[in-house]
Simulated assay, not measured.
Amino acid sequence: METTSPIERLLRGTAITLVCLFFMFPIVWIFLMSFQTNESILRVPPSLIFAPTLENYQALITGKLQTAAGMLEINFMRNLWNSLFLSTTSVALGLVLGVPAAYAFARLKFKGSEDIAFTLLSFRFAPPLLVLLPLTIYFQQLGLANTYGGLIWVYQLIVLPLILWIVRGYFEDIPADVEYAYRIAGHDFWSTFRRIALPLAGPGIAAAGLLAFIFAWNNFVFALVLASADKQPVTVGALAFVTASGIQYGQVAAGIVLSIAPTFALALYAQRYLVEGLSLGAVKG
């Protein structure tokens, strides 16, 4: 068994520490900014020594933002709830529609299946601005503008292709003989899918759901145009911190901390599924 010398272990530990500091520094800095006033943040040169304050978080929770021009009403907590509701519901719907479709594309080879699958994937390639104008017109005609249902529907352009292709690749990695043996035992197609394919594809489905949730959470353009302030997610609601009297950097930092907390916690909880799902060929296809 090959062993490493103390110098190699020291160099490796130093390298890992430097890499972690490089990638974690922006997050740590934003976290520290969220406890500072604008005067402290804009101080030159910047300093790590400051008197912490909870005013930024208090302003976000109460919805009252104090600016140089006076008191400003904001709906950040409503925007945060909107993001959670829209992302969760969109991913749930995307999984209900995308997982059976992915299984069908993986197991049922029919004429035009690859063309249909690539067409669905191409929705991820197209920039949102390409479809935004037609969607706006259609949504106004159908009465879907400024509705949760309309936003959840359009969010499928983000989550459904991602779920479909990741889960499809994972289903293709599952040996078909296992399912055939279960079918020969007298079970139908739906029972095979539910009891054999779904459990074996669990890590891939979890990875696809997590990535889809992050992409849905970070969406900005669709919600900016298709929804009003009371239904917009936190990515759009953060624009309220840019006021005529200046940018409220402390509130922006506090808003970033609160907005990334759900996705960060979800990623930490599901990182085992994410690593396993992506490393075992779930992105093949």
Rank of each mutant, 00 (worst) to 15 (best):
E114A: 13
M77Q: 07
G98M: 00
W153S: 12
Y273A: 15
A15G: 13
V19W: 09
I41M: 06
Q140G: 14
V44E: 14
A15M: 11
G13W: 02
I27P: 08
T147D: 07
G237C: 01
S83G: 09
L97Q: 07
Q36A: 04
P233C: 08
L121T: 10
G204E: 06
L132Q: 04
G94I: 00
A265S: 15
A51W: 11
L157G: 10
I247N: 14
F23C: 11
I30V: 15
F118Y: 13
L266C: 06
P26Q: 11
I116L: 13
A206C: 11
L48R: 09
G169L: 00
F110Q: 15
I27K: 10
A69V: 10
V99C: 03
V167I: 08
L121W: 01
A145D: 11
V242L: 13
A207T: 06
R194D: 08
Y170V: 05
A185C: 15
G149L: 03
Y180Q: 15
K284Y: 04
A197H: 03
A267Y: 10
G202K: 15
Y269Q: 12
I174Y: 01
A216Q: 05
K111Q: 15
S90V: 03
Q36E: 10
F85P: 02
V159N: 07
L151G: 04
T136P: 00
I74L: 02
I247S: 15
A253L: 02
A261D: 09
R12G: 12
M33I: 07
H187M: 08
A201P: 00
D188M: 02
T136I: 06
A212Y: 01
V225P: 00
